[in-house]
Amino acid sequence: MAQLPEDGRPIFVQIAEKIEDDILEGRLMEESQVPSTNQFASFYRINPATAAKGVNQLVDQGILYKKRGIGMFVTEGAQEIVKQKRRELFYEQYVVTMIQEAKKLGITIEQLTEMIQERG
């Protein structure tokens, strides 16, 4: 059992993200079977219809595909699709907010770059 955070985002989006994370980090290999929506529902203690909605979103985006009568599988090339999607999000979510916050605190872009280089 795992608990999803109450962060105001729809639960099905959070579920889709969890699966994407698994694909990205190699826990779910391409062409391997993913757990059923009912298993997701039990694991995250959510309504099975919500779990199905999250999974279907990934099917629509070509990340997962259905094998009739067998179950749900990770598409070949899914990792690349997820990476691409996340890169776009990364800019929105992290870069833009980071620069905003940095400005508030009076950190210049140069200082910011320096920090990143130090860390990396």
């Binding site: 929506t37 529902a41 039990s42 995250y44 309504n47 919500t50």
Partner: peptide, 29 residues
Amino acid sequence: DRLIEDYAEYPRTVILSTHLIDEVSQLLE
């Protein structure tokens, strides 16, 4: 857990009335 498992396999209409809303809110449609 048992509710979700069994409901997923044998769907039915469920009405849950409770004070512990936080615990069940993700189960509700």
